[in-house]
């Protein structure tokens, strides 16, 4: 187990190092930030001064060395635009994105599991087929389009919900949040729904497949032979069994919801990390982009590591294979 842990940690560090290199080098391909930061009528001397102040006059390998050295000390640079540490800029936006991702997660469970179980119980009925076909739409419709359609319907036509932005932020237990007021919730619904749609489709398919498989098991037949009601069989015997794969997948998907709410946040002008990333790319605010991508990589690596370790702990076969390998 210890060998496994060390090897996994080594792999994780390698992934982070490779990503750091890729991200840093890729930033140079995006464009020269001096073009944006300097006023259009600035002469070459002023431009050089800005480049020198930001350390952009030095050769690439030197900049990279400095970046790695500082990153190892927990410093991912200062935002060119805000002139505060890039990490602070991102962390400031983190609660908004977490709020969105968690609401999206709740939506995808609330939509996905009931529909998936329903479709799994009657796979050949019109309802079951309808749900499964619908889930294909959930997979394939682009996120931004769904967002726009929701805005069109609920904000423009029906005028029920706001089209974008975030509700008033209050501090609850020291965390700035907008999720505890009616206005804040109203702002959350549409972007969270947009974010949840793809995940719901995923949950529907997992829950449907799980339900179909579980319903054929002997223990369901035995439960029926015991005289249990249909509700008890579905809500206890089936649901508990299908939750194992659902939880596994959603755990991993939560990471991607936090990291890649970019499109949704942009469509809804939602002030989260994703919107920050797009804004930073537009302003060529390199340190923020790099810091954001690095944090995303680290979040993913950590979530994957935890899931892998959990598997090794739960499933003895994983441990055996590792011991032999």
């Amino acid at each position: 187990m210890l060998v496994y842990l060390i090897r996994r940690l080594g792999q994780s560090l390698l992934v982070i190092a490779v990503m750091a290199t890729l991200v840093f080098v890729a930033m140079f391909a995006v464009g020269d930030p001096v073009d944006i930061l300097a006023s259009p009528d600035a002469d070459q001397r002023e431009r050089d001064a800005i480049a020198k102040r930001l350390g952009l006059d030095r050769p690439l390998w030197e900049q990279f060395g400095l970046f790695v050295w500082r990153a190892l000390h927990g410093d991912l640079g200062r935002s060119f635009v805000y002139n505060v540490p890039a990490v602070d800029v991102i962390l400031q936006r983190l609660p908004a994105t977490l709020e969105l991702a968690l609401t999206g997660l709740v939506f995808s469970i609330a939509i996905g599991i009931p529909l998936g179980v329903l479709a799994g119980l009657k796979p050949y009925s019109r309802l079951g087929r309808g749900i499964m076909s619908g889930s294909i739409l959930g997979f394939s419709l682009p996120n931004f389009w769904i967002g726009l359609m929701l805005i069109l319907l609920f904000a423009v036509e029906l005028r029920l919900l706001p089209a974008g932005g975030r509700g008033p932020v209050v501090s609850v237990l020291g965390i700035p949040t907008a999720a505890f007021s009616l206005e804040g919730l109203k702002h959350l619904i549409l972007p969270a729904l947009t974010l949840a749609l793809y995940k719901s489709a995923l949950v529907i398919r997992i829950a449907q497949a799980g339900t179909r498989e579980v319903m054929l098991q002997d223990y369901i037949r035995f439960a029926r032979a015991k005289g249990l009601s249909r509700q008890r069989i579905i809500f206890v015997h089936v649901l508990k069994n299908i939750m194992i794969p659902v939880v596994t997948v959603l755990g991993l998907e939560l990471g991607s919801m936090i990291a890649f709410a970019v499109v949704t946040e942009t469509v809804f002008a939602y002030p989260g990390m994703g919107k920050l990333l797009i804004d930073s790319i537009n302003r060529l605010d390199r340190p923020v982009i790099v810091a954001y991508l690095m944090m995303t990589v680290v979040i993913f690596v950590i979530i994957n590591l935890i899931v892998d370790l959990l598997y090794a702990a739960i499933d003895p076969r994983v441990r055996l294979a590792e011991a032999k390998g």
């Binding site: 223990y219 035995f222 032979a225 005289g227 009601s229 206890v236 508990k240």
Partner: peptide, 27 residues
């Protein structure tokens, strides 16, 4: 349903699969 388990009971062939793996025996 009211008769099953009460007046009519059944046991099955494979004891490894007739009990739900994620629920405790008392449940």
């Amino acid at each position: 349903r009211a008769l099953r388990g009460k007046r009519l009971a059944m046991i099955f062939q494979d004891p490894m699969t007739t009990l739900n793996p994620v629920l405790r025996i008392d449940t």
